[in-house]
């Protein structure tokens, strides 16, 4: 179970009009690891994520998720995969017309046959996991940015997914909440063996949670491996990203 590749991408190329956004990306993500995608803004991180969760079709290349080629799949089969993954969008993307608990309960109601009381219990449990018991009846417009993120997280993990995707989960959160979120992520991974694919800029959280990182520079994969390997690589941009040159100068 440890060496199984849960996501495989081969020679992925994306173009918007004639602009190449992702240039020949290949990578493998193993079951149970925390895989962090890094890179400067506009480097194509969100785009890569959208490919894996099927929101965008690439120009060329292959993508397989949970052992199945998602590009050659019927929509119905792909929906089966979607039920096994959870996504936390950059802005939360809660449905504004529904209360917090309904947002969290949504996929449970539509995709499982669980009794209503059990669904309520699950919602309560997920909300207390993200520390939002008091928000049960609130509407998204009544939440702060950080609270929205946490509700979105509760919604993303509602179905106990096998893979969880985060697009900049801690952007706009205070350091304490962000650290709590990291704890939560680590706990989820340890307890449920969830695979996590995270786009983030937070150095602290990268250092704490990342098993392996992918560094995208203008759509090119310039590094994929562990943090220690990245440090040993001596790439100028990566060093600048982590502030590694500075440290050596200062010390």
């Amino acid at each position: 179970m440890t060496t199984e590749n849960i996501i495989e991408i081969k020679n992925l190329v994306t173009k918007f009009d004639d602009r190449v956004i992702l240039d020949d990306i290949s990578l493998e993500i193993e079951r149970g690891e925390i895989f962090v995608i890094l890179g400067s803004s506009g480097g194509g991180k969100t785009t890569l994520l959208k490919h894996i969760i099927g929101l965008l079709k690439p120009f060329s290349g292959e993508i397989s998720v949970l052992g199945q080629d998602i590009l050659k799949m019927e929509l119905e089969d792909f929906e089966g995969i979607l039920k096994k993954i959870g996504v936390l969008f950059q802005g939360g993307a809660l449905l504004n017309s529904m209360a917090v608990w309904e947002n969290v309960a949504m996929s449970l109601e539509h995709h499982t046959k669980l009794p209503a009381a059990t669904i309520r219990n699950i919602v309560k449990q997920k909300l207390s996991l993200v520390n939002l018991k008091h928000a049960y009846w609130l509407f998204p417009s009544e939440l702060s940015g950080g609270m929205k993120k946490r509700v979105a997280l509760a919604r993303a993990i509602a179905m106990d997914p096998e893979i969880l995707f985060f697009d900049e989960p801690s952007a706009g959160l205070d350091p304490i909440t962000a650290a709590d979120l990291d704890d939560l992520i680590l706990e989820l991974q340890k307890k449920l063996g969830i695979t996590l694919v995270v786009v983030t800029h937070e150095l602290e959280s990268i250092k704490r949670i990342a098993d392996r990182i992918l560094y995208l520079q203008k759509g090119k994969n310039i590094f994929c491996g562990t943090l220690d390997e990245a440090k040993a690589l001596g790439n100028e941009e990566i060093d600048r990203f982590f502030g590694w040159n500075k440290k050596t100068k200062n010390n």
Binding site: L108, L114, T118, I119, I122, Q125, I157, L192
Partner: peptide
């Protein structure tokens, strides 16, 4: 097992 299992 997972959370949904616990709930059930």
């Amino acid at each position: 097992f997972d959370t949904l299992s616990v709930a059930i």
